[in-house]
Design a protein around this nucleic acid. Structure first.
Lengths: 295, 295
DNA sequence: AACTTCTATCGCAATTCTCGATAGGTGAGC
DNA sequence: GCTCACCTATCGAGAATTGCGATAGAAGTT
């Protein structure tokens, strides 16, 4: 049982037929048949049940299938480990919440790309749950998500701790009075954004429910909306610092348990940490992340 | 890069020479040389530094080595998974603390062996730390240890919860008076036993320190020593129930935080659970473990 | 009944693997 | 300084494996 055998086995199992597998593997059907038969002889167990429309996994085959994928992944990882001589280079696939990417990662990415031109950085965005799945599935080397995740196979590390503040129009009124206004909307960066959920929780706890939502694609748009009294939004303090200094909006601090949100970087515990990823993490930790933070 | 290549690579790295590796692999040196050279060409990286007395790993080789072991383990596990058709059979290597084996496991093992004669059960004993290492190193499918362990790669499950009691000679005196006796010894099953450590902590907390230790190989010996007033020991309540009913010893309950000790079964989180292991765990959980417990 | 789609098998070619022998290099010991 | 022991590199021939194309057979579809 070799890695090559397992690759063929995996293709046959996934495509449900030796002909289809042969096509994908750039070989001929007789070859696939022979290799599968040899594998079955070696393991002394039938792996596929043959029928007229293709093949189906037997129980033994079902037991083998996950190992085929794991062996392939492990060998791919070994290749990367050998190729990684310590100088950050090559592909680096990481993920991030859209909000984090927009608010925090932009300067990190820019300076990282400048510092390590040899690295081909790919940034995927999605919800925390999607990103966790991608990391677990070896599709991403790591991701920035809102935590805690507490998955046994994932290592997590807090990289940003945001203090979220309510942002409203400039007004002598208190926050409660502002929230009581008719037609108030909550303004969020994007549907599904983590801050939206948090904002709704915060308002619900104050008895404000059923507000309309308004989506904006840019941070400045959010702040503009809040300044105009159209709605209320929730943003990291650092992001609204400028608008606040300029007197365009009011910011309202929240109690710590509502205000603080940790952005974690997650990666597989057993996974290989490429030099590119190590360099990226060092870069993210070493202060570039504070570029937008308040003075 | 195939599993076979990695096996050859691993042997060369471990033995420090292609000749030695060829011997172990039952092939000839030229073959090993060629395969290693091909592997180096494929990976485009030198794996070994050749010198007159053999070869030494290069940095790239050092990076590859752990993957060779992991691939080999994974493939071995895949073989076992395929061979395991649901009927418990074949080898089953588990570990246990000596104390647990003696006090709790004997009836489980006996009835398991009778129920599943197809399983070749091997029981290794050692300290908790040793057993944890053996499980992590794929040498044992699981082990009974005293917890908590909290290792990220290990799944742990509480299988026994013992109530430990102090066992002393039968006497109208209170436990404090008995502990104050001169020449009192602590009697333990074996050096390094977990209960010994707990017993010393318990006594230390009551100001009793520096006692002599006496080791006995059997539970009955411990109880006999305690009954004769030679020493004091610490045992699960169930084990001394008979001697207590017969009026041979006094048992003294302890506060919960001192009395309760969990025996956990640990196994690798990512590891394959063989049918034999599943059957064993079901067996252990389903009441056979209570054979020696009090009525 | 003809057709399509799939797997099993066979013979042959190409590739790869294995083996044994030989060459070359290096350090230890005399 | 020489030989000896030990090691790796390389070569060529034979063996084994793998890959390919063609064909046969089975089963569902039209």
């Amino acid at each position: 049982m070799d890695a090559a055998d397992l690759r063929i086995f995996e293709a046959v199992a996934r495509l449900g037929g030796m002909n289809r597998a042969a096509g994908e593997l750039r070989t001929v059907q007789s070859n696939v048949t022979q290799r599968i038969r040899q594998l079955e002889e070696e393991l002394e167990a039938p792996l596929f049940q043959r029928h007229a429309r293709g093949v189906a996994l037997t129980p033994a085959g079902r037991r083998l299938l996950p190992y085929a994928a794991r062996v392939a992944q492990l060998i791919a990882e070994a290749r990367r480990a050998v190729a990684d001589d310590g100088a950050p280079k090559g592909p680096l696939a990481i993920g991030s919440l859209e909000t984090t990417a927009a608010l925090r990662l932009a300067p990190v990415l820019a300076s990282f790309a400048a510092a390590y031109p040899e690295v081909d950085l790919a940034l995927a965005t999605g919800t925390s749950a999607e990103l966790v799945d991608l990391v677990l599935g070896h599709r991403l080397e790591g991701a920035f998500v809102c935590g805690p995740v507490r998955h046994p196979e994932l290592e997590e590390e807090t990289v940003f701790r945001e203090e979220l503040v309510l942002v409203t129009q400039r007004s002598p009124l208190g926050v409660d009075a502002l929230l009581a206004a008719r037609d108030l909307k909550i303004v969020v960066l994007r549907a599904g954004c983590f801050y939206r959920q948090r904002l709704e929780e915060i308002l619900a706890r104050r008895g404000v429910v059923g507000l309309r939502r308004l989506e904006f694609g840019t941070i400045d748009g959010l702040i503009g909306c809040a300044a105009a009294g159209i709605g209320v939004t929730l943003l990291p303090r650092g992001v609204v610092a400028r608008a606040w200094r300029e007197g365009r909006v009011n910011v309202h601090a929240l109690p710590a348990e509502e205000a603080l949100v940790d952005t974690l970087f997650i990666r597989r515990r057993d996974g290989f940490v490429s030099s590119a990823l190590a360099a990226f993490l060092a870069h993210a930790r070493s202060g570039h992340a504070e570029a937008e933070a308040p003075e």
